[in-house]
Amino acid sequence: MPAADTNPDVSALAAAPGVEEWHLDLHAQGARRDEAVAHLHGILLRAARFEVFRRRGSLPQLSAAELDELVQDAADDAAVSVLRRLGDFRGESSFRTWAYKFALLEAAVKVRRRAWRDREVTLEPEHWESLAHAGPGPDDDAESGALLEAVRDGIRTALTPRQRLVLVALVLEGVPIDVLAERLGSNRNALYKMLHDARRRLRAHVAAAGFQEANE
């Protein structure tokens, strides 16, 4: 049983039902903390390895050693994040689950960026014109065609240039959001907010053209 901690937040966590205790030593000093950090790193390695090997199909060119290097980097970066954000843990899940998500995120981002490292991201928003060639087929009705035209018109006229670029890259070109964030010098959250705003403008434009089902 760890010694009582004078940090009131840590004491509260220790009292919460179902809270693992080892992670409380991450707030400690010396050998106790070192052991806890090693334990944490082991957990993060497990999650990072799980994620990298789950996605290894997107990195066929990498050797097992290179994949393992990705795993190690992801676990190391996740450890830094976890230790920096220890105060965010509120016991709403197990500490292991909470920590896992940091490693899964780091690993997923690294895999996506590595997979796209040598791929050009064509940041030419005019590529949305490819929608023009995805028009209704013989079995589609006139309403589908009209909706598609309304969407094309909305992309052309209702969005800012940046919104158009983000929407086209993420939705039409399938660029992973972390890859686009890196290329644009931005971050995932900012890009998603831009995508959200672009979608809202597009829905409003399409609804104003008489397609209320766009808001369903």
Binding site: L147, R188, E213, E216
Partner: peptide, 24 residues
């Protein structure tokens, strides 16, 4: 035509007006 009948690409372009969290 209902929202459910929309082409998947159009659905991804238009999104939904349901309240949602952001990535963070």
């Amino acid at each position: 035509m209902t929202g459910r009948d929309l082409d998947p690409t159009l659905l991804r372009l238009l999104g939904s007006d349901e309240p949602e969290l952001d990535c963070d």
